[in-house]
Each structure stands twice: as structure tokens, then as C-alpha cells.
Design a protein around this nucleic acid. Sequence first.
DNA 1: TCAATTCGTTCACTTAAGTTAAGAAATGAA
DNA 2: TTCATTTCTTAACTTAAGTGAACGAATTGA
Lengths: 193, 193
Amino acid sequence: MEDILFDFMSKYISLTEEEKNIILSLDIFRTVKKGTILLKEGQKSKSSYFVLKGCIRTYYVIDSEEKTTAFYTEMEALTPPCVITQTPSEYYVSCIEDTLLTVTNSDMEVEVNAKFPKFEIMCRKLSEENLAKQQINFDEFKTSSPEQRYLNLLQKRPDLIQRVPQYQLASYLGIKPESLSRVRARITEKNKE
Amino acid sequence: MEDILFDFMSKYISLTEEEKNIILSLDIFRTVKKGTILLKEGQKSKSSYFVLKGCIRTYYVIDSEEKTTAFYTEMEALTPPCVITQTPSEYYVSCIEDTLLTVTNSDMEVEVNAKFPKFEIMCRKLSEENLAKQQINFDEFKTSSPEQRYLNLLQKRPDLIQRVPQYQLASYLGIKPESLSRVRARITEKNKE
DNA sequence: TCAATTCGTTCACTTAAGTTAAGAAATGAA
DNA sequence: TTCATTTCTTAACTTAAGTGAACGAATTGA
């Protein structure tokens, strides 16, 4: 389990055994049951998450309706905006499967970053990389139709379509569940021809 | 002109005169004429931009149609994804006004970061902050209709609606120019009542 | 295990966006 | 200033998404 984390980190920096031990001593691994809410709307938080196994999602409640905007699965990291802006959270974070993740506190990060400049570098690289990915994703979203977005998802994250309820996928694609049903029907119809 | 940059940087780190001089010695300020293309599709690049005055936009050419996905104005920074991934650019970057900006090379950043850990910290904070903003933006986009997105833009970046051509705004809002015309007509119609 | 809830799909209808085309308005270059 | 080009708007028509409702399937939990 630690190995998953260290393998991931090794893409950005190299770590000595001593450094690994320091990380382990922070006690950051958590196993979380499906349905657990990690962060609620209105709540303040300093926690970032890194998913080792499982899946978490972020969602808003707007007019008492859930709007799912993102999923984080294996090897993906989430630092909610409220942690950066130090304001109450606008959204919820919950586990949609039994999930193994790390939970790190931003104070903790500040401390470790101060001790090991290497960590600062890793954090910078990670967030630069995530920003770049996020930009590409957003651009793809803007420039395509719901149907194209679904087909695109089918290509890039086919696992999500299996593991996530349709109504959550729908808002993730920016449409209503009924429309997603139609999109799917339309696509299988086309494939028959 | 340097002051604008240093004022901005002072939000993240404090700088000595000496450090400021090092930055100035890098010769990063550029004035660029309206219409200039800073980055082309297919091109490799290591340049990041920070807009001091003016406006730049990123756009894709899809089926020989321009799809504008972002605008960067005063005090906003852009590091194109291709700089991070070190692959050919998927999009164009061009100036839609005469623009004053800084152009920094990623090699340059690596060098300065190595010399001054402070810079590393600033870069990390900046990209964390931009990532958080980007996430919020994307979420708002996903959870609202074209009309709401336009009204939202009217609130948050009213300047854009003045300084940017409608057809560029349209794709920025994820719709066709004709639809944006209708959205605007609908809104002024509603306001009359 | 069974009842209750939640979820996914379908349908009919409404609303809004995409498409094609035409013309008006604005812009820019000679 | 004038002419050509680009941009914006309008209109008619098509296509797809939103809405409200119904119903069966799947899931859940008592």
C-alpha cells in the first residue's frame, strides 16, 4: 500500500529510505467505506486527498439536486479549492466505493515542504501537471457536444461508465439523466446500422 | 511596468532589490501588437506568459473553425499545457489587443528556481491557486446553461464582453455565435418587461 | 426475504441550440 | 472616404436537450 504511493512519488522526485519513513510516520493512509462524506458544503478544511484504490466524487447541491462535477480514481489527487482559498467549501466530497486513500493536511505539507525542498518541487510539478490536464479537459468539454463528450469518456475513462451511477455521469457530462439515456440509446442505435 | 510585476509577485513572496535586479536582467518584458500569434498549433514551446496589460486568447482550429477556449487579461498567467507535457501544441495563442506581457522560458524558471527556493514556492502557490480557480470555473460551466453562463460572465468579467468579438465569446461559452445573439436578445427582452 | 426506495429508461411535449442562408452593421485598408 | 471584408443579427427550419410523468428494474435495508 505504501508502495503505490512511493511509486507514484518517484515519478516526480527520488526519495531516501529516511524520507520514506518520515512520510510513513505522518500516518496518512485511510480506508473509507462507500458512501462516506469526506467534506460537506459550508465546512472548512485543510485536507487533500490522493486515491490509491477506489473512487471519490465532488458534487454540489443546487436546488436540492446533486450536480456531480468530478471523479477521482486510482493515482489521482484532489485538493479542494476551499483548502486553497481557506473559505467554506462550496461542494461535497464523498466516496462512491470503498476507498483507500491518503489524507494530508495543508499544515503538514507546509511543515514537510519547509524541511525538504524536494517536496515543494513535487507539489509544484503535480499541480502544474494537474492544471495542464484540467485545462485540456475543460477545452474538450467546451468544444464538444454531449454526445461527443460521452464518446470521449468511453475512450478515455471507460471504467467510470461501469463504476459510476448514470445520474452522476449525466451531470459530469453537463446534461440531465434523461438526456444521457437518450444519448446512449442513440449511440447503440447507430452502432446497429 | 516592472512595478506591476513586482506588486503581483509580492502577493506570494517578498523580494530583495537584488532579486528584483536578477529578474530584470532576464529581459522578459515584451510589447506585442494586436493579432500577433504567440504560439501555433503543432509548435513546441517552453514559453509561459503573464499579461500586464492587454488580452491574449487560446483557440483551437477544428474543422477549419476557430474555437476560443480562454482569455487571459491583466494579472493573469498562462502556461500552455504543451509546455508541461513537452509535446506539440494543440492550440493557438494570439493577442486580441496590443499587449504588454512577460515571456518566460521554462529552462529559465528551472534555473531561477534552483537558485532561489522562494521562486519555487511562488510557482507552486500560483499554480495551486490557478488550479483551484480553474476547477471552480469548470464546475460552474458544467452546472449551468448557456444563458446562465453568459449572465455569470456579465457579472464576473464584464470587461470581456466589451473587448472581445462575439464569435470568440460564443465558443468561450460553449455555443455558436448565432445562439449567443439569441441569448443576448432574450435577455434584453426580459429586461424590458 | 420482501417492501420501499432509488435508478434508468421511455414517452409526449416544450424550449433552446445547431444549421443554413441572407442581409445589416462595423471594421479596416487603400 | 470608400470599398471590401469581417462580424453580428435575424429568420426559418432541424435537431437535441429540458421537463414532467410513468413504469419496470435494481438496490437497499429492515
